[in-house]
Design a protein around this nucleic acid. Structure first.
Length: 679
RNA sequence: GGCGGUUUAGCUCAGUUGGUUAGAGCAGCGGAAUCAUAAUCCGCGUGUCCGGGGUUCGAGUCCCUGAACCGCCA
């Protein structure tokens, strides 16, 4: 039966760039989603930027820009990072959208109607200069318990917990001034009204057992405190319609972003929204980090229940990432941004490494640079890819056998293992799945070793035997690639090309590929370059932007070198001349190297619908084809087609820069769609 | 302090409802092979399964107790 599955990852905050810690979650989710799609389930992956809150407001103030300016930039940056790692969302939205506001209003109205909102006046520290109330983390002062200076507003290194108003000599971390105590009205949601429901839901199997235990022991063993859901102006967020001057706390509208982003998707694709979010047979799966457990497992299901939305079928909670056994550290160069990683290493390495480490438990996982090197080299290069590498060549001229030869039951054995592998994927036991897959690879390599095709090749009377052995080797290889394709989509594409077959269905692992042509073998994966790791660490030490706060928007003097290198054109053109050039937004849907050419990449550009252009672009030195797929570019759509040695080039991609590695493709702002014309 | 979790080989981890001599990968040692990207194959493990007590014919697994480490406390 086809399942209807809606999957989300937690919304990354728009104030920061994506780093390798975030990627644990997005890769875990992406792998799970790709697995579900491969199994033929009706599965969509929804995410969005989390945009509201004090931190972003303060950053905008400091930089002297509008919040939405930052949001646009970060949205594009996030998408670029995710795309680079092969993370494929069905919709990547934002919490700052009209769709999201509509659902916030709706859910709020339901909570009001249920009579669960109370008003209370509370005292809070207020920064007069910055004109804002101060969240706990924006106040520093002396610990009231132990007297230690320079401690945050909610707890001290000594372990003491207190409220910011108890701090001795409090100072605003924003302006450095002494805050004053002010009263403000806050709205509280009486979550405890749903206590019985939550107890039941928490124990329903929606959570890992240790999480359920934790919630039952930590929170549900006594009445839940009313939830402080509002923040007084000024606040960057949605104003509460029936309480002017008050805004929803960011944790109210953030999870609702899952719904708002889904709405964008259903509107865009013509699907029925209610069949996803108002349908008990739809499975909602959230993937989150352990730090935000209680928002997602107490308030969120309560909100959904009150407003009559589909409840989460499962909340998958993962631990944190440590690097070399420690917290990520900027000074050690282990705080690695996604974009920094992509400059130096193949994203497949990290996808596989995380997969091999992930289980259904909440344990932290450790990224150890020596281990990633050992694991990739041993498992992927030495075991999996080696299978093709040692057989494909021999089969180049003969192709695959018409009938499947005797392989001592290896294919059937690996096909049977598919059920266990699928179960491991389904349960989030990716590490187990990878172990099982590697066992298939080991058996296959042993078979090749024993069959010794390299010896048989020397005996010209045994051509059929040689072809049979390669047929077995390549079938066992393809089977493994089917199993690995959720983790390694790029490898999947390469193998499709090598063996002239599609790998788009889990059940292909049970079908043999016979009689087909085998294309020339190209390296499918290279060993982890030591120097790549070293350079990545080095660059991470110096990256300025590690916390995501971009440099202030000061006016800087730009260098005049580009103009000197290429002076402005004297000749003027008329607007008519300009409009002769049909510039369009296009999405790169395929990108591959042209092996015979030094500079060229072959790109397939989508202009929307079924309109595509085949283009050869001289950007090989500047871009890895894998990182281009999915991104938006500007192209000249009406350029005279030109026949090249490698094929017909039907357009041109617009880029700046002198050439070589210094080529910069032009990207549109968020919102542009393939096919739009530039004016 | 309360609550939740973890502790198995040098490292990373498996060990299903208690059931023979506790396993895998990596690292290490020895050998074979030379198709493949220094890739592959074979062989090599004396581990107080954190300590102590208990239940049981039998405990890494269940119970009690202690220790160390990690996380959470709205």
């Amino acid at each position: 039966m086809t399942r209807k599955i809606l999957v989300t990852s937690a919304l990354p905050y728009a104030n920061g760039h994506i780093h390798i810690g975030h990627l644990v979650e997005y890769l875990q989710t992406d792998i799970w989603v790709r697995f579900q799609k491969l199994r033929g389930n009706d599965c969509i992956y929804i995410c969005a930027d989390d945009t509201h809150g004090t931190a972003l407001m303060i950053r905008a103030q400091k930089e002297g820009v509008k919040e939405t300016d930052i949001l646009e930039k970060m949205h594009a940056a996030h998408i670029e990072d995710f795309t680079g790692f092969g993370i494929r969302f069905d919709n990547y939205g934002s919490t700052n959208t009209s769709e999201n506001r509509v659902f916030c209003n709706e859910i709020w109205a339901a909570i009001r109607k249920a009579g669960l909102v109370d008003e209370k006046e509370i005292e809070q520290l207020y920064d007069v200069q910055a004109k804002t109330f101060l969240a706990d983390r924006f106040v520093k002062g002396t610990c009231p318990k132990c007297g230690k200076k320079d401690q945050y507003g909610d707890n001290c290194e000594c372990g003491a917990h207190y409220s910011p108003t108890e701090l001795v000599d409090p100072i605003s971390a924003i302006s450095g001034t002494v805050p004053e105590l002010r009263k403000a009205k806050h709205l509280f949601v009486n979550v405890d009204a749903e206590h019985a429901f939550l107890e039941k839901w928490v124990s329903s199997g929606a959570l890992q057992p240790e999480v359920a235990n934790y919630l039952l022991g930590q929170f549900l063993n006594e009445p839940l405190h009313p939830w402080d859901i509002s923040r007084p102006a000024p606040y960057f967020g949605f104003e509460i319609p029936d309480s002017p001057g008050n805004y929803w706390y960011v944790w109210f509208d953030a999870p609702i972003g899952y719904i708002g982003s889904t709405k964008q998707w259903t509107d865009r694709t013509g699907h029925d929204f209610n069949s996803w979010w108002r349908n008990t047979s739809t499975e909602i799966h959230h993937f989150i980090g352990k730090d935000i457990t209680y928002f997602h497992t107490l308030f969120w299901p309560a909100m959904l229940k009150i407003a009559g939305f589909t409840l989460p079928k499962k909340v998958h909670i993962h631990g944190f990432l440590t690097v070399n056994g420690e917290k990520m550290s900027k000074s050690k160069g282990t705080f690695v941004l996604a974009s920094t990683y992509l400059k130096h290493l193949d994203p497949s390495y990290l996808r596989y490494f995380y997969a091999s480490k992930l289980s259904s438990r909440v344990d932290d996982i450790d990224l150890n640079f020596e281990e990633i090197e050992a694991k990739i080299n041993a498992d992927l290069v030495g075991n999996v890819v080696n299978l093709a590498s040692r057989t494909a060549k021999f089969a180049l001229h003969t192709g695959l056998s018409e009938y499947y030869p005797d392989d001592n039951g290896l294919f059937d054995e690996a096909a049977a293992a598919g059920d266990e592998i699928a179960e491991a994927y389904e349960n989030g036991e990716f590490g187990k799945a990878m172990r099982l897959i590697m066992e298939c690879g080991n058996r296959a390599n042993k078979f090749i070793e024993d069959a010794a095709p390299w010896t048989i090749k020397l005996d010209t009377t045994r051509k059929d035997d040689l072809r049979d052995i390669c047929t077995i080797g390549l079938n066992l290889f393809r089977q493994i690639v089917v199993y690995l394709s959720p983790v390694l989509p790029k490898l999947k594409t390469q193998v499709e090309e090598l063996l002239n077959c599609k790998i788009d269905d889990w059940n292909l692992s049970k079908e043999k590929l016979l009689g087909g042509k085998v294309n020339p073998y190209k390296h499918l994966m290279t060993r982890v370059p030591k120097e790549g790791i070293a350079r990545m660490i080095e660059e991470s030490k110096s990256s300025e932007d590690f916390a995501g706060t971009s440099r202030p928007a000061e006016t800087t003097t730009d260098t005049d070198e580009p103009l000197k290198a290429e002076p402005l054109t004297e000749t003027k053109v008329s607007i008519d001349d300009f409009t002769k050039v049909d510039l369009r937004i296009a999405r790169i849907v395929e990108a591959s190297e042209v092996k015979e050419a030094k500079k060229l990449l072959r790109l397939k550009l989508s202009l929307g619908g079924d309109k595509f252009l085949n283009v050869f672009a001289g950007i090989k030195a500047a871009y890895d084809p894998a990182t281009l797929i999915g991104r938006l570019v500007v192209c000249v759509a009406n350029l005279e087609p030109r026949q090249m040695k490698f094929g017909l080039s039907e357009g041109m991609v617009v880029a700046a820069g002198p050439g070589g590695e210094e080529i910069y493709l032009i990207s549109p702002d968020t919102g542009a769609k393939p096919g739009m014309r530039l004016h």
